[in-house]
Every structure is written in structure tokens, then in C-alpha cells.
Design a protein around this nucleic acid. Sequence first.
DNA 1: CTGAAAGCGCTTACAG
DNA 2: CTGAAAGCGCTTACAG
Lengths: 340, 340
Amino acid sequence: MKSKQTSFDIAYRAGVSQSTVSRALRNSPLVNEETRRRVQEIAAELNYKVDKNASSLRTQQSGTIALLLFEDPTNDDSLINPFFLSMLGSITRASAKKGYDLLVSFQQMSNDWHADFEDTRKADGIILLGYGDYTDYEEKLVQLIKQETHFVRWGADVKGLSVVSVGCDNFHGGYQVTEHVINKNRKNFAFLGGVTTGSPEFLDRYKGHCQALKDNNLAVDSKLQIDAVSTDESGYLAAKQLLENGVTFDAICAASDLIAIGAMRAVQEAGYNIPKDIAVVGFDDIATASSTFPAMTTAKQDTVLAGELLVDKLLQLVRGEEAQTQLMPTTLVVRKSCGS
Amino acid sequence: MKSKQTSFDIAYRAGVSQSTVSRALRNSPLVNEETRRRVQEIAAELNYKVDKNASSLRTQQSGTIALLLFEDPTNDDSLINPFFLSMLGSITRASAKKGYDLLVSFQQMSNDWHADFEDTRKADGIILLGYGDYTDYEEKLVQLIKQETHFVRWGADVKGLSVVSVGCDNFHGGYQVTEHVINKNRKNFAFLGGVTTGSPEFLDRYKGHCQALKDNNLAVDSKLQIDAVSTDESGYLAAKQLLENGVTFDAICAASDLIAIGAMRAVQEAGYNIPKDIAVVGFDDIATASSTFPAMTTAKQDTVLAGELLVDKLLQLVRGEEAQTQLMPTTLVVRKSCGS
DNA sequence: CTGAAAGCGCTTACAG
DNA sequence: CTGAAAGCGCTTACAG
């Protein structure tokens, strides 16, 4: 039971050639029904498994997908954004469903991605996932394209480059949540989240937010927009700053749930009631959103669907087919944080 | 730039043999400084990367770790327990730090694990992670041992089998949280969580819980122990059942944060105030625990440390060294759900 | 339907 | 310090 079994061992016991073993194990139609059964039986008995390295080397395809999770270097080293964690989970599930293994690796945005292209050798394709400054990011995409790597990415559509993306309709999502709060009779809206071109998702949400305000004849006050990255700490700080500004507001639209959670804490600590004094909406619908107090109203990004789309499209690319960028709709999840 | 480069291409351009290229790229001391530099330069220029399949096949080691996440089949198909998600994150980080790739795969407990042993071929070792009925689980361990697979697991120590485990001191953790609540002058304790030998973690927490009660001359009432699996829905249902029992209680110890979250909802819906009427403690310290209302007091399991220990020990095994089972202490995280 | 043989791209004794 | 050569364990034309 000790030393590693090879197809030759199976062949010997089955009394056939090694080629036949290989065929039988891959269910080749070329092999006799009875022979196949016998070979498979013996293989199972000896607990033999095909060596993937050898077979990948031979066929030049690995049956694995690489997931590159990259992060904003400003983030805490030890924590992963729960939204991405949930994407990770659904991608794992989706690739398992397709019979692919998933190789996961972390990457600091600042790193030399050359090291990662290495994964190309171990994987048939790559899924890119993460926030980070978009400007850095773009050159890496160009490089991936130049290398003819099969890859898809999570995020806003990329103008110019021919990259397959799956993302949410952030503009619409921003519009949607803002409109919902407007319908709760709020007039003065703050927005928490960085709105540079470096983070196109947040920017789009902000644009949707502003559009909803305009469509309802409400003012957009730039003093009420405070930059924040997607952590609750950053949201807390941003909300505190907002409070200190002295500008009045009765609603906060946060660019992410994490930001919203931090903001809720700051607002409550300052003695305000949510939603009576201040309504708060998030974006993402991470697991925590349903457990905050009050439970958070937010725009849900469907991570399960996202994971499936990402691997489906990647696999299309791997098979040499065309694949299209796709924008998923967000759905409004109404809970308590904007009133009932 | 199109077709795949091999070490022969590099050799040709560098004017050396393919063997020398291989040596230069692996920083073999055998190769001349100047030659090495030249080869590496050319390799970088052509964006050449060693084919891992070939090199793994040749060296018989893959430089990758497989993570097997298995789940209770009763769980919702699409969601992953946030505690495990966070473990997944820290394991990914820890293995990256050691220069290992991480192959992630999901497994239903009920499945034939033969399929997974396949991973043995792609990975140097396996990390086992998940809840599930322990009795099923045990045979799989026996099989892994028989196959001399390098593996470590997360969880309670296994009596009898020589398996390397990393887990928390669940008994102590259960004791710790219960004692804390006792100090808040509570007298009648409910425990939510299944306490069969099928889930040794919960059982140990319960035992610690009971011990703390006994040490403080408090009664253990079996009517106040309700089975639950680790989901908030199950916690909600268990707490409702508890409420309907009509037995009075002023504290709930939940076997996990998820259960506690569901229980808090049920209790609050029934019109009770937390912590005034009923104190609630959880176990795990998942991200959500700090955002519940009131914020949850719980026993923290350090997932970052756990991830590191798990990969360290696995790597020891891979290198042929001894590795020891290790129990980590839990730490009490005091928030608001038991009063201040 | 089956077997003998080539070859995937490396690593590493072996000989110099 | 360098090169020629064997071999890791498969898959798949090729020939029968």
C-alpha cells in the first residue's frame, strides 16, 4: 500500500497494456466494455489515481482555474473584505460544479505580477478579483492580454481594453438605494466613499446617487461627500468628519456595507437615532448587513450568480469561444435602517 | 510572443545547454554567476516561467497545499459558514507566506472521498476543515492515514488515531463565557447547540459550560439545552422552542455566534431586552459579532493563528518531521450582550 | 478493440 | 562550472 501506484501497476494486474489502462480510465469509447470495467475495478481497489501533473503535462491543460485576489495595500494585513470572501466562496463552488479545481492566491497590488503569470502554467485561466487603485491595475491587464492569457475579472467594465468583466450595475444600484431613501422623505444626503477614477465602482455608485438626487430636484452638496475606503474603520472616521463639518443631513448613502457599518456606529455614538434622525443605506449586502441594528437596507450584489458567471465566461474563453462582459442588476434589500 | 516558451528556447538564446538554464533558474550554486545572470535576464525578457507540471512531475512535489472544506449537507447549498470562510482566508494567507499555492475544494460530507485523494497528486499535503457528523468523518481519517497522506485537520483532538489537529480549547472556552455571564448575576442558563458525539466541538463547549455552572453551584437543567446546528436560522428556531418551553431563564450560551445571532432575533421579537432580561453569549467571534445589537460578547477563536499553525504543521509533516496536535486558547471578547 | 512508442518540459545524477 | 542523457507518469497518434 505504500509506494505510489502507476498506470503500469494497474496494467500488470489487469493483464493489459498501460495504454489500455489509460483509455479505460478516461472512459474512451475505444476500449472494450468488459476490459474497462475490470481496469476500473482494479484501479479503485488499489486506490489508484491518475497523476495530474503527468496528465496535465501531456495534454497541456490543467483542469484548474486560478483565482487572484488582490487587495488595496492600505488594508489590514490579516483581514479579507467579507464581500470578497463571499465571492471566493461562490467561485469555489462554481468551479467545483464545472469539475475544475481552484487555485487561490493573494496578491498585493503593488507586487510584481510576473510571479503570478506563473499560475498560467498551473491553470487554464485566471479570475481577477479585488479593489485597488485602478490605474496600477490597468497595466497588468494590458500585460495579461499581450500574453494571451485567458482571464476574466470582477468589476466595472473597462473602456478601451478588450477584457471580459462581470460586475454589478453600480450606477443603477446607487440610483436605486438613493431613490428609496428619497421616498422616505429625506432631503439632505451625505455620501461616504472615495469617488476617484481609481475606484470606478464607488464612482459609479456616486454618479447614480447624484443622478437620483437631481431627478428629484434635490441638491448635491460636495461638502457632504467624504472619501472612505471599504472598511468599517474608514466609514467610522468619515462619518465623524461629516458630523464635525456641521452641515446638516438626514441620510447617509455609503459606498459599501462596511462603510455603512462604521458610519452607523459613529452616528449612534453621537446620539442620533437610526433611522429616525438619520437614514443609512449600504451597498453589497454582506452577511453582517442583516445583523446590524437596525438591520441595514442595502443594494445586494448577487455573489452566487457572480461566481457562476465568472467561471462560465472564463471557461468559454478557455474553450476558445467568445465571451461577453456582463452587468448584473443589483437588488434593493429593504430592512430597517431607513425607516419602515 | 505567442507560442509557449520552453527552457530550450532560453538555452538557445543564452548559448548554453538546457540543463544550465534549469540550474540557473533554480539558483543552483553550481552555475557561474555571470551565466546565471544572463539566463535569468533572458528568461525575464521572454517572460518565461518554468512549467510547474513538468517540474512537479519530475521532482514529485507540487509546492501546493490542498484545502478540503467539507460541510454538513443540511446546510444551505450556497452559503459558507463565515467562520470557515475566515479560516479559508487565513489559510490562504499563511500558505502564500510559505510560498505554497492553495488548492481549494468543497466536499459534501456524504460524498465519496476517493475523488479527493486525487488531490494528493496535485498537492503535497491536505488540510481538512469543516463541521459534519464526526462518525462519518472518522473513517475517512483512517483511510487517509492508511494511504500515508500528509494531512492536518482543524478541530477537536481525535482519541485513538494518530492525527495532527489544531483546534481551540472548546471546554475552556465554554467555561470562560459561562463564567463571565455568571459574574453578571445570571442564574438560569440555557444552552443552544447540538451536544452529540457527532459534533465534538459543541459537546466540549457544553461540557465547559456545565462545569462552570457546577463550580458556581448553579443547576444544569436539561430542559434548557436545545439542539441547533451552526446557522442563525437554527439558532432562531431553537430559541423559539426554548421560549415556548415555558422554563424561565436569564441567560443563553450559544454554541456558535451564528446560533447566538438567531437566538437574539427570536428573543427580541418576543419582546425581551438583551441584556437586561436575557444575556446572550456566542462562540467564534465572526466579523458579524461586533455589529449585532447589542454587540455580542463571545469567545474568540483566533483564525489567523489557526491558519498559520495548520500550514506550519502540515509543512512539517511534508518535510518528514514530527508535528504535534495543538490546542489554542480562546479569548473572551466582552461587548454588550451580557450587560456592562 | 489493443499495444508499442513518442513526447509533454522539466530536474538531476553522471561524466567531464 | 557545463553538457548529454535518462526519466518523472501520463496521453494519443500510429499500426495492427
